[in-house]
């Protein structure tokens, strides 16, 4: 009797701690009031708003090491926080304009950051908290994504109209690919076969075949497509058009539009829930986070964020 009570409470503790460990959050960087809004997923309940260094923009989550990273382009900082307690772990001063950010989910959890002003990718080792490498790319690098399995890094160079493919382990450049005008955001399909590039200057999505390293398709999607995301089964991709205030769903095979959903003003970034049923979109002008049900193609809630929500990059866990 006594024994089983202990077993029960132990099980309870274990359950609690494992639930705590997998709490699924969206981290929204609010550039204009220097805060991060944390929403519990999938429902989007606001669980915390914490102050950070000025002008947070980029986000990358490292669940394996319980960390979340933010870039602060104006102050040159990359900051690391505990992804559950939201306590500051460390800061790295890059002396540049750190913008896009991603984490290598294998091994040490190296952090790759684009430097907007110096046309470079910085590599940060979170164990030593130092910049350990500097890789040249082209003008105004914005988004960066990593294929941890194939060991490749993709960088969108906004002012050069190119995407650079780098090796994740050696200072080797695989390719520089010409794109449409002003490539800004990137999405790697989960199978690693395609990279979707949103080009804000002319409203296109360019689709790069990662094997041939060629743009195989270019489609017009709208005005200022600021972000793109791919479904977990690789069959659909989602684009948010800042100039049209909408989210468009595309069939990845036929490249045809499946649905078009109106959003709040100036949508900026999109991520999907871990089960793929919901999309989360920040609306920069209105200071809102929209939750979209991708089954019914409708906005199910619109939540208040801080001022100037950017959430550039992977602001939810895959």
């Amino acid at each position: 009797m006594h024994h089983s009570a202990i077993t029960l409470s132990l099980t309870g503790l274990l359950l609690l701690s494992s639930q705590f460990a997998v709490a699924d959050y969206a981290y929204i960087t609010n550039q204009d009031d220097a805060t991060v809004s944390v929403f519990d997923l999938p429902d989007g309940k606001l669980v915390n708003t914490f102050s950070v260094d000025s002008g947070p923009v980029g986000v990358a989550i490292d669940n394996k090491h319980h960390r979340v990273y933010f870039t602060h382009p104006e102050s040159g900082l990359v900051t690391a926080y505990d992804n559950q307690s939201f306590e500051l772990l460390f800061k790295v001063d890059t002396f540049g304009q750190p913008f896009g950010i991603t984490v290598d989910h294998t091994a040490k959890g190296l952090v790759f950051v684009t430097d907007w002003n110096r046309d470079a990718v910085l590599v940060i080792n979170p164990e030593t908290k130092q910049i350990v490498d500097l890789l040249a790319v082209q003008e105004s690098p914005a988004d960066i994504v990593i294929d941890s399995e194939k060991r490749r890094i993709y960088v969108a160079n906004r002012e050069s109209n190119t995407v650079t493919i780098l090796d994740a382990d050696t200072p080797r450049k695989h390719a520089v690919i010409a794109t449409s005008k002003n490539p800004y955001s990137l999405a790697l399909s989960p199978d690693g076969k395609r990279v979707y590039v949103s080009t804000v200057g002319d409203g296109h999505i360019d689709i790069i075949d990662t094997e041939s390293k060629q743009v195989t398709d270019t489609i017009k999607v709208g005005n200022s497509p600021y972000d793109v995301s791919v479904s977990h089964d690789n069959k659909r991709f989602y684009v948010v058009n800042q100039g049209d205030n909408n989210l468009i769903t595309f069939d990845a095979l036929s490249l045809k539009q499946i649905s078009r959903i109106p959003l709040a003003k100036m949508p900026e970034s999109i991520m999907l829930s871990s089960d793929g049923q919901f999309a989360y979109v920040t609306n920069w002008f209105d200071n809102k986070l929209s939750i979209v049900d991708l089954q019914s193609n409708s906005v199910i809630s619109t939540l208040k964020t801080g001022k100037g929500p950017r959430a550039f990059g992977g602001f939810t866990s895959p």
């Binding site: 540049g96 907007w116 920069w284």
Partner: peptide, 19 residues
């Protein structure tokens, strides 16, 4: 290297990181 890079590109063209 950083210092060198900063000197060569103090005035970036086109849009920056803070809308």
């Amino acid at each position: 290297l950083f210092a060198l890079l900063s000197f060569t590109s103090t005035m970036a063209t086109a849009h920056g990181p803070t809308p």
